[in-house]
Amino acid sequence: MRVLVLGGSQFLGRALAVEALARGHEVTTFNRGQTGRDVPGVEVVHGDREVTADLERLVDGRSWDVVVDTCGYVPQVVGSAARLLSGHATTYVFISSISAIGDFPAKPADESSELWECAPDAGREDGDYGVLKAGCERAVEQGFDGNTLIIQPGLILGPHENVGRLPWWLTRIERGGRVLAPGTPDLPMQLVDARDIAVFTLDQAEKGVSDRFIVTGPPGNTTYGEWLQMCKDETGSDAEFVWVADQFLVDNEVGVWVELPLWSPAGPEMDNFWSASIAKATAAGLRTRPVADTVRDTWAWLREIPVDERWFGKSSHGIEPGKEDVILNKWASVQSSTDGTAQQA
């Protein structure tokens, strides 16, 4: 096939380009050329999807069997690309997010779940990430004249991750010492490797499927404790995990999801975050690798990057060492006081 990847130099987009090349497809990538490195073997077209002239230059004299949009976040922008690419491609694949589902994670999610209300021509100020992703889905379905395949991933990890979640944990655990571990080690998680999403997406695209799928790992494919232990094992660290209660972290103003990546305090609004249904995708052929393989391969990739060039160190993810020490010391004091009270009683 001829495959166009909008994006294609980072994380999931890169995984899709690599997988498509491995299958013998002809791959074109379209991105600004400002972040990430283009995959060797693809036809590279640099441009800005928000500039009409750049999109017109992209489609001039070209056509594809499949377009995979990995970097669409604003409905207005996505709709413009979908309309312009109509007639130049047979199938438009849009990489959305499970966050596009309106009542998730307070309620269970499957492909019949209602999306957030968001117009297909909404602008970037008309909602947050999940709301705008819902509008992007509508923009593709209404704007593209052809097959539309909507992929709603869950929590994605893997090599070339450009968010800094697993890379931050690996780097922090490698440093060793006392490590602030949030909540409870037996919390079941539901993680998926970007490469497995790429395989499933291209499998469906090759079949000409026009549908939507939630694509993530099996519920409980690891626990928080097991996941951090995998990071420790891979890095050969002497880290000592200190598990700190959710409420204590909230009381000490630890940033949910960001300061301790993938952590959120338990509560009814999060009841189903780690248990989305993948029954439909599994029936269609979704297969996922063990989380340990994802951790191993991410660490192998990370080790190839000089420490001072690891861009995610400049991102907002990860708690500052000083703040981590303060919280660990306060927690130790609370635990000591509690133990002393128990002994007196």
Rank of each mutant, 00 (worst) to 15 (best):
T282E: 14
L202D: 12
Y92H: 14
D271W: 03
E304A: 07
F94I: 08
A89S: 03
R2D: 13
T235Y: 11
A300M: 02
R296D: 07
R287A: 08
A134N: 06
E240I: 10
L180Y: 07
W257H: 13
Y73D: 02
R212H: 12
F248W: 07
E320L: 14
N147K: 13
P40R: 06
W331C: 04
L262E: 06
W299H: 14
G123R: 09
D196L: 02
H25V: 04
G24H: 06
E206Q: 09
V192E: 01
E19A: 14
P182G: 11
V179Q: 09
V140A: 02
A194K: 03
T52A: 15
I327G: 08
M1A: 12
W274L: 06
P265L: 09
K107M: 13
G79L: 15
C231H: 04
P40Y: 07
L170S: 03
F273K: 13
F241R: 07
L260T: 03
F104S: 05
D293E: 15
E125G: 02
G87Q: 10
T338V: 10
C71L: 15
V291M: 06
Q247H: 09
F273N: 12
A284E: 08
G164K: 08
A17K: 04
C231E: 04
A332D: 10
N221M: 07
T235E: 10
V199I: 12
W257A: 03
V192H: 02
G217A: 11
I101N: 13
T91R: 15
D145R: 14
W299D: 09
G158M: 12
G87D: 11
L155C: 01
Y129F: 04
V18D: 09
E309N: 08
Q247L: 04
T70K: 12
D233S: 12
V67N: 00
R289M: 03
W243I: 06
V326L: 15
G220N: 05
Q152K: 14
R83E: 14
E117M: 08
T28H: 01
V131Y: 02
D126G: 03
G130S: 00
K232L: 13
G313I: 00
D193K: 06
E206G: 02
D65I: 01
D186N: 14
V18T: 11
W257G: 00
P261L: 09
R303W: 01
S275R: 15
D203A: 05
E114H: 10
Q343E: 13
L166P: 03
A89I: 00
T338A: 15
R62Y: 04
S86Y: 13
P290T: 01
G36A: 06
A181M: 03
L55Y: 00
Y92R: 11
V68H: 05
L6R: 04
E304P: 00
T298K: 02
A17T: 05
Q247T: 06
S264E: 12
E324K: 07
E324Y: 07
A284G: 06
L115C: 00
T29A: 11
V74N: 05
E56N: 10
R178T: 03
G183P: 00
V18I: 12
D103F: 14
L202Y: 14
P265A: 05
F248V: 04
G177D: 07
K133S: 01
S210A: 15
G322I: 00
A239T: 07
F94P: 00
R62A: 08
G47T: 01
E304M: 02
Q34I: 09
T184W: 08
P153G: 09
